[in-house]
């Protein structure tokens, strides 16, 4: 009984002392300490992954934050995050900005602020070749995705009869697909393409043309951190104008890569 009482007291204590990290002026803070701390993916080519030779994190997301840091005149410190950990990390002040394939949506926008979209893709599936032609084929099947992602919520809504298995990150879900533990892996097409390109047995898999949602990616910042959000938005719009944004896209997804993706979007101010 005593233990329960103590527990209740601890919880009450937590209740009183809890205060979410305040959105100060990140822009000023970052300039002062000379480092921009970025939450990024570390095993999701080509957005953010460890380069085998240099042992450093590189990718599309990384190039964007590098450009922002360069404009600020500060260094970049990269912190690997997962889909589930990135928002708490930001709110608690462990990181200053999220550049981790994060979809902008209304639910998240209640808790954090987003930049304009810097990448656009849509949620699709990756499956064994020829096994899936329409959403119907996935009913009642086991589908893998990542914890805390929009993909998880979208697929649960799109195919209610499916069993959704959430892994820590997408490559693990794909590994489960390769081993036959799930029938499909679902997330944004660009991520799927990245995984497929790296897969050792890519010939056996395909991405059928079934899209269940649009996924615009935004850089995440603390709620109400207006100066910083404005600065980031201004920077990425300039990058679009100068052609730098397009160059980054071409570098990671263009014809010289394994992906051959068309750039179907331009970074523009949201309405």
């Amino acid at each position: 009984m005593k233990k329960l009482v103590t527990l209740c007291m601890m919880v009450a204590l937590a209740t009183i002392t809890v205060k979410a990290a305040q959105a100060g002026d990140t822009l000023a803070d970052v300039k002062k300490k000379g480092v921009l701390t970025v939450g990024c993916k570390d095993s999701l080519p080509p957005f953010g992954y460890i380069d085998e030779k240099s042992r450093q994190i590189v990718g599309y997301d990384i190039d964007f934050v590098n450009a922002i840091a360069k404009k600020l005149g500060v260094k970049v410190e990269l912190k690997p995050v997962t889909s589930a950990s990135r928002m708490p990390q930001l709110q608690e002040g462990h990181i200053d900005i999220i550049a981790a394939t994060m979809t902008k949506n209304a639910e998240r926008a209640k808790v954090i602020d987003f930049s304009h979209a810097y990448f656009l893709t849509g949620q699709k599936f990756i499956t064994k070749k020829g096994s899936v032609n329409s959403l119907k084929d996935l009913e009642g099947k086991r589908i893998g995705t990542a914890k805390g992602s929009t993909s998880e919520k979208n697929v649960a809504a799109a195919i209610p009869s499916a069993t959704i298995l959430s892994f820590d990150d997408y490559p693990q879900a794909f590994l489960a697909l390769m081993q036959g533990k799930v029938s499909a892996v679902t997330t944004d097409e660009a991520i799927l393409a990245g995984i497929l390109a790296k897969a050792p047995t890519k010939g056996q898999f395909e991405i059928p043309n079934i899209q269940i949602s649009d996924e615009p990616y935004g850089l995440g910042m603390r709620k109400g951190d207006t100066n910083f959000v404005n600065f980031v938005n201004k920077t990425i719009l300039e990058m679009e104008k100068s052609g730098e944004a397009k160059a980054i896209f071409e570098k990671w997804f263009g014809p010289t890569t394994q992906f051959h993706l068309e750039r179907t979007f331009k970074i523009s101010a949201d309405k």
């Binding site: 809890v18 589930a84 928002m87 708490p88 914890k147 805390g148 919520k153 959430s166 892994f167």
Partner: peptide, 20 residues
């Protein structure tokens, strides 16, 4: 991906942002 107690607590947190 076994949906046991801690998994579900984490899941509730990521859906509702009510971690505590």
């Amino acid at each position: 991906g076994v949906m046991e107690m801690t998994y579900q607590a984490r899941q509730v947190e990521s859906y509702s942002f009510k971690g505590f």
